[in-house]
Design a protein around this nucleic acid. Structure first.
Length: 578
RNA sequence: CGGGACGUAGCGUAGCCUGGUAGCGCGUCUGAAUGGGGUUCAGAAGGUCGUGAGUUCAAUUCUCACCGUCCCGACCA
């Protein structure tokens, strides 16, 4: 391709609405343009990158035995009603009406569609296992689209759905996808790491996210230095805490003491009380589907609502209002406690088990209780891991201090179980002629998000550093004259033809621009290899070959093609391709 | 949905406080010189100042409403 024949509008300045580096470069390098918030047009260079990522995804999905299908983007609400997600997922729907004023949904995901298809088509255990995938545009009414392609109203996703006869077989399918994902991201030049994840509203039992560490990421990931443990903070657990207090503490009876003006955990840590936060019991009031509950944590710990969702089995809860709390416990936040509370279900975090000498609110403003023994004085209905892991907590696997960092989620694999197959009647007859629901898994990769995540991870101050596997062009030829009759251009044409003939995706910068402009643009877009051809080096019979971010090497004109292919090999070798 | 910022040419911005119909840089077009890291000079085109209402002799400027964008939070498969 010749630069003048394609359309790669680079921007010298950054559009004001771009915040993170990948968003800025996306626009500056002419990969995409914004139509409006959360909606982008991919320009030719962007489409080339997208197609390359998609090709890698297809190859790896096919290798793993998945079969490509293409489902409708437009979906009937009825299948969502049958799965039960018409209500739980309703906020993300884009709804449209046809001329008969019937409602339709622009698909945010496709579990319902594929399961309906499988329910019709797969009836015998002999037809399993199956894994269907597609690369499709998804529509989600995001609360806040942001960061360019990272969180958009419309985006391209690869989604796959596996169907197995048994839970064990489903585990095998899950593992295949897990392995395929590792290969896919590696081939895209992306350092994506698998972390244990919460299943959220998707339902199911078991899940990993593939994340790209980045400050701009919206996920928070907990990990141990050696890599033995990594989890989304929503899911992350840590080594159990030692119980607070001593046998002597346990012998003391509860004692009420005045705490005028104390409204927070922090207040109580100050003089004259001097009660460290870890000796306090934090009492939270939540309303779950209109019924109140108490949630107890150590004073220095904080609640993880994702974990609470799992324990409660529903996401329909919210913190109680001040009025609701006053009515329920006859006290304001700051003096709340669970001692003697029998009329409200109490959920307590595991870290509070067997703690002695604790302090908690007395359910009377300005009063607290000391010498509380959790197992003696509280009627806990359910002990569970409810706390949010913090940096410095000990790793549940290795015992070393955990670290925390932000990351971009680019892929997610779920083991779903039979939730959708039962709801949508995806049943089959097993060997004994018994009807069974299929065991499902679902597996997503954000294609457009992956593209931007690569930019976020692979760039320098001059622009993008595309991995050779997904670069819009792998080689850019930069003749420093655009005059077709010049020796410079003639040599450029010759190398262009040779590289093209040998199957290299090469771009010829035939624009009549100053050298500086061409160099800047090539760096900005980030072609892995650039061939510079100018009078000076040509006088010695040389052209210059340069890896993006690397050093110039002079090579003889006749050896240029060979040298480029060697460099390209080096680029690919650096990716440690599977 | 709550909080904040912003909306002036394709892009980045000044002007607004203190009202008198708009300026700069980049880009674009023409010409010339130049030609190894966004070169220089000369000329030119390009604006419903987000939309609507109000105040005023007069509104980009002041007031209100709406729309849109971005950020933080809440929320989120």
């Amino acid at each position: 391709m010749r630069w003048t024949q394609t359309f790669m509008p680079t921007l010298r300045e950054t559009p004001a609405d771009a915040e993170i580096i990948s968003h800025k470069l996306l626009l500056r390098a002419g990969i995409a343009r914004k139509l409006t918030g959360g909606l982008y047009t991919f320009l030719p260079a962007g489409v080339r990158v997208l197609r390359k990522i998609e090709t890698i995804v297809r190859e790896e999905m096919n290798r793993a035995g998945a079969l490509e299908v293409l489902m409708p983007a437009l979906q009937p609400p009825e299948i969502w009603q049958r799965s039960g997600r018409y209500d739980t997922a309703s906020e993300v729907f884009f709804r449209v009406k046809d001329r008969a004023r019937k409602e339709w949904i622009l698909g945010p995901t496709h579990e319902e569609v594929i399961t309906t298809m499988v329910a019709d088509e797969l009836n015998s255990y002999r037809q399993f296992p199956r894994n269907f995938y597609q690369i499709q545009t998804k529509f989600r009414d995001e609360i806040r689209p942001r960061f360019g392609l990272m969180r958009a109203k419309e985006f391209i996703m690869k989604d796959a759905y596996s169907f197995d006869c048994t839970d064990e077989a489903a585990q095998t399918s899950y593992q295949k996808m897990y392995d395929a994902y590792s290969r896919i991201f590696k081939r895209c030049g992306l350092q994506a790491i698998p972390v244990e994840a919460d299943t959220g509203v998707m339902g199911g039992k078991f899940s990993h996210e593939f994340v790209v560490p980045a400050e701009s990421g919206e996920d928070e990931v907990v990990y141990s230095e050696g890599g033995r443990y990594a989890a989304n903070v929503e899911k992350a657990a840590c080594k159990p805490f030692e119980p607070i207090g001593t046998e002597a503490d346990a012998a003391l009876p509860i004692e009420r003491f005045a705490t005028p003006g104390v409204g927070t955990i922090d207040d109580l840590t100050c003089e004259p009380f001097g009660v460290p936060a870890w000796r306090q019991i934090k009492t939270l009031v939540y309303v779950v589907e209109s019924k109140p509950i108490l949630v107890l944590l150590r004073g220095d710990h904080s609640l993880n609502e994702a974990k609470l969702t799992g324990v409660l089995g529903t996401a329909k809860f919210r913190p109680a209002t001040a009025d609701e709390i006053l009515e329920l416990l006859k006290a304001h936040p700051g003096s709340l406690g669970a001692v003697g509370v029998a009329h409200v279900p109490v959920y307590a975090d595991e870290a509070l088990r067997n703690c002695r000498g604790m302090v908690t609110g007395a359910n009377e403003d300005g009063w607290h209780l000391r010498h509380v023994v959790t197992d003696r004085d509280l009627s806990v209905g359910r002990w569970a891991d409810l706390r949010t892991v913090r940096a410095g907590d000990l790793c549940p696997v290795t015992g070393e201090p955990l670290k925390l960092r932000r990351a971009i989620e680019v892929g997610h694999v779920f083991k779903l179980g039979t939730k959708y197959s039962i709801a949508l009647n995806a049943l089959f007859l097993d060997e004994s002629g018994k009807q069974q629901p299929a065991f499902m898994g679902c597996y997503g990769i954000g294609i457009t998000r992956t593209l931007q995540a690569v930019i976020e991870q692979c760039h320098d101050q001059d622009g993008i550093l595309w991995p050779a596997t997904i670069a819009p062009y792998t080689v850019c030829i930069t003749p420093l004259s655009a005059d077709p009759n010049s020796q410079v251009m003639q040599v450029a044409e010759q190398i262009y033809a040779e590289l093209g003939a040998s199957g290299v995706e090469v771009l010829m910068d035939d624009r009549n621009e100053r050298p500086g402009v061409k160099f800047k643009d090539a760096d900005l877009i980030g072609f892995p290899i650039r061939v510079g051809i100018g009078e000076k080096s040509l006088a010695n019979g040389n052209v210059e070959v340069k890896r993006r971010g690397g050093a110039l090497t002079a090579v003889k004109v006749g050896e240029a093609t060979c040298a480029v292919r060697e460099l390209l090999k080096g680029c690919l070798a650096n990716l440690n391709l599977p």
